[in-house]
Design a binder for these strands. Structure first.
Length: 419
RNA sequence: GGAUGGGUGCCCGAGUGGCGAAGGGGCCAGACUGUAAAUCUGGUGCCGACUGGCAUAACACCGCAGGUUCGACUCCUGCUCCAUCCA
């Protein structure tokens, strides 16, 4: 469990804290929300559809919001969307999501739950974990459209931002229903837990409004919604995407070292946003670090990378990742935690192993063809020396203390260790 | 159900008988640098240890299956999926 320190902000109202950090994008009622958060302990919810087997950085932003809310005394409901995942949210998509089997959805949901409990305290009702499969799957079609469907105007839905794109490329009735499902979630949570707010990424705005509306119509009660900026680069591209796909929180899918490197390499222009939204450093410190210029900003990036890695993978892993990065890029330091493969020494007896074969074997390149190309283009070095010959045989005597460091391109390192 | 248009490599997208398929994006590498950006250059089917091999070996040769042809992404037939309009 990660604890947010008290010095994170001078503000006492979490609304001001979130505002200060640049999270808030749209609100249904700004003043009322601020006031409510000031006066009351509020129960709020954020939904997560288990469409993958690990959370990614986009989800993580939402988790951070919940951490802030919890720190300031409010009660988060983590809503696992096993029910809604059966439908698939069309928001911001140009094509339909692939249908998922209930088994995968269930499994993913379980993994989500474990991850959440690393950041949010579920003890003694301080947070609640719910699953909308609990009510959505048992709905009766006719009852549902009579009771809930009647509150939704198709005319209005069609004008909603989230369907705009899909009206051009095609939208099935299945997906069209997503909004009703999500709206209904809010109603259920209001009834069960007196949940008064729904938060989400800015792409969830239409869905959130649907819920706020529905609760008002069904219960004659005012509830609230708020969306948060999506994590984007200064050029508006989504952050947290790597060539391999998303940047996952699960160490199996994205190693702490890779995770660290991602943040170590963000663009100068994005340092501020990242520090502010993804770390709990006090704002003065954020300002100070992000105002560093030229090469000095690397210092800020190092802190960013360390802090975010620490948050996600713990201090020990963060230290290891940092040590490894320093050893590789700055020279010196411990090579213990550099990405590596241990291989048996006999393998390198006699003729040895072809360099390209070796590269492919340790997954430094996806195919041997790529390996040849890399070497031909001068993209590979061994222990700091550029490899010119694609026919190079790697033998035992090339290792120093049983280690050999391969470097592909500028930033990809891999250590081979003999055993 | 009918009519029309369309399915091309990671993505977008050209191509109407010689294509391992233009162009762009992305990605990889080189130069410059600060593990940044921008810019410029090269590369990007697979295999491989080489100026070679492979589509009767594959995830992967232009949606799938046949046919015409010396030769098919290109022509023909059937199927399938998508979009638009009509019912």
């Amino acid at each position: 469990m990660y604890e947010i320190r008290d010095n994170v902000s001078k503000h006492t109202n979490v609304y001001d804290v979130l505002k200060e950090r640049g999270f808030i994008k749209q609100t249904t009622h700004e003043e009322e929300i601020r006031e409510l958060l000031e006066k009351e302990k509020v129960t709020f919810y954020i939904g997560f559809d288990p469409t993958a087997d690990s959370l990614h950085v986009g989800h993580f932003m939402q988790v951070i919001i919940m951490m802030y809310m919890q720190k300031y005394g409010h009660t988060p409901i983590v809503l696992i969307g096993a029910g809604t995942a059966m439908i698939g949210d069309p928001s911001g998509r140009t094509d339909m999501r692939q249908m998922m089997t209930p088994e995968t959805i269930l499994e993913n949901g379980e993994k989500f739950k474990t991850t959440f409990s690393r950041f949010i305290d579920f003890d003694g009702g301080k947070a609640i974990c719910e699953n909308n499969a609990n009510w959505l799957l048992d709905l009766k079609y006719v009852d549902f459209i009579r009771d809930i469907g009647r509150h939704f105007s198709v005319n209005r839905m069609l004008t909603a931002e989230c369907f705009k794109q899909r009206l051009e490329t095609g939208l099935s009735f299945l997906e069209f229903n997503y909004m009703l499902m999500q709206g209904y979630d809010f109603l259920e949570l209001y009834r069960r837990y007196n949940c008064k707010m729904e938060f989400g990424g800015d792409d969830q705005w239409s869905n959130i409004l649907a819920g706020v509306d529905l609760v008002r119509r069904e219960e004659q009660e005012q509830v609230f919604g708020m969306t948060f900026a999506l994590l984007t680069t200064s050029e508006g591209k989504k952050m947290g995407k790597t060539q391999k796909g998303a940047l996952w929180l699960d160490a199996e899918k994205t190693t702490p070292y890779e995770f660290y490197q991602y943040w170590r390499n963000v663009e100068d222009a994005d340092v501020r946003t990242c520090l502010s939204m993804l770390t709990f450093l006090p704002m003065e410190e954020v300002e100070e670090l992000s105002s560093l210029k030229d090469a000095k900003i690397n210092h800020a990036k190092e802190i960013l990378a360390f802090e975010v890695t620490k948050l996600v993978h713990g201090e020990e892993e963060a230290n290891k990742a940092q040590d490894a990065a320093r050893a590789l890029f700055a020279g010196g330091g411990s090579m213990d935690d550099v990405p590596k493969t241990v291989m048996s020494a006999e393998k390198f007896d006699g003729e040895g192993v072809g360099i390209v074969t070796l590269m492919a074997e340790i997954k430094l390149v996806p195919s041997k063809g790529e390996g040849f190309r890399t070497i031909q283009q001068g993209g590979l070095s061994i222990d700091g020396e550029k490899v010119k010959d694609t026919k190079l045989m790697v033998t035992k005597d090339m290792f120093t203390d049983g280690q050999l460091l391969l470097k592909k391109g500028k930033k990809t390192f891999h250590l081979i260790e003999l055993k």
